[in-house]
């Protein structure tokens, strides 16, 4: 199972760099985060922090991750490569895991160049920035990206149309964020409270303060796992339709 899943992950990862979408996504992400870094983190007299960069980066992941995940399964179904893949002796769980891992590797590759911001900040600021919030900020971006990719994997497994996969993931995430964010605060009684507890904003704020709460980490990982499980069911159910 592991060699097949890792082969699928590597293939998926490399394929993102053999099509324009991978390079465009990375270039756009780095350009926008770079603009935010220059305009918000390098301000004379202000404390050295990447907090604002992480906040904006989290929002940037909202359109960027669906662009990465949209082709995971949809492209296989469209081009017909799903047939030889699903008739090879590889379990559906390995296929889902491999594709998801490939997308996660891409996420890490996309975030890696932004480490230069922390290095620049440390070099030009005095006193040096507190490493805690920076580490926590990166962890939050990785966890948030993984969750978005898990949702994207599920949506991509439901369609053969990449545009639909992108829009479906983007809209689902946007609605979920609104429902568990600002809108939840206006809802009366327990419903609002429950939605806020399920939401991401308070957790992201904790990470931004430099607090790495295990409960938050488990939350992100377990929600991602649930969506992957649903993606597995969706892929498996294709065999039964």
């Amino acid at each position: 199972m592991i060699p097949a899943a890792s082969a699928i992950a590597v293939r998926e990862y490399r394929s993102l760099f053999r099509v324009p979408v991978g390079w465009i996504v990375i270039a756009l992400y780095l350009f926008l985060t770079g603009v935010v870094f220059v305009s918000s983190a390098l301000i004379p007299g202000e404390p050295a922090s990447l907090r604002y960069v992480f906040g904006i980066s989290g929002w940037l992941l909202l359109p960027v991750m669906p662009a990465v995940s949209m082709r995971l399964f949809a492209e296989e179904f469209r081009s017909g490569t799903a047939e030889p893949l699903m008739t090879s002796p590889v379990s559906d769980a390995s296929i889902v895991a491999g594709k998801y891992l490939g997308a996660c590797l891409f996420l890490l590759t996309m975030l890696a160049p932004t480490l230069i911001y922390a290095v620049i900040l440390a070099a030009v600021s005095d006193p040096a920035p507190d490493p805690g919030p920076i580490l926590a900020g990166y962890l939050s971006l990785v966890l948030l990206g993984m969750l978005y990719l898990a949702v994207g994997t599920l949506v991509s497994s439901l369609t053969a149309n990449q545009t639909l996969a992108f829009l479906g993931t983007f809209l689902f995430l946007l609605i979920a964020l609104l429902l568990t964010g600002d809108m939840a605060a206006r809802l009366p009684g327990n419903i609002g409270a429950i939605l806020i507890r399920l939401g991401l904003s308070t957790r992201m704020e904790d990470f931004a303060r430099g607090v790495i709460d295990t409960a938050h980490v488990v939350f992100f990982l377990s929600v991602s796992a649930w969506f992957l499980l649903l993606a597995f069911v969706a892929v498996e159910s294709r065999r039964w339709r």
């Binding site: 097949a4 394929s15 490569t81």
Partner: peptide
């Protein structure tokens, strides 16, 4: 159907991995 972005060698090697 085959992955259009892969080389012939790469594609065959990938298929071989899937078959253990």
């Amino acid at each position: 159907p085959a992955y259009s972005e892969m080389s012939v060698d790469g594609f065959l090697s990938f298929r071989g991995t899937l078959y253990g």
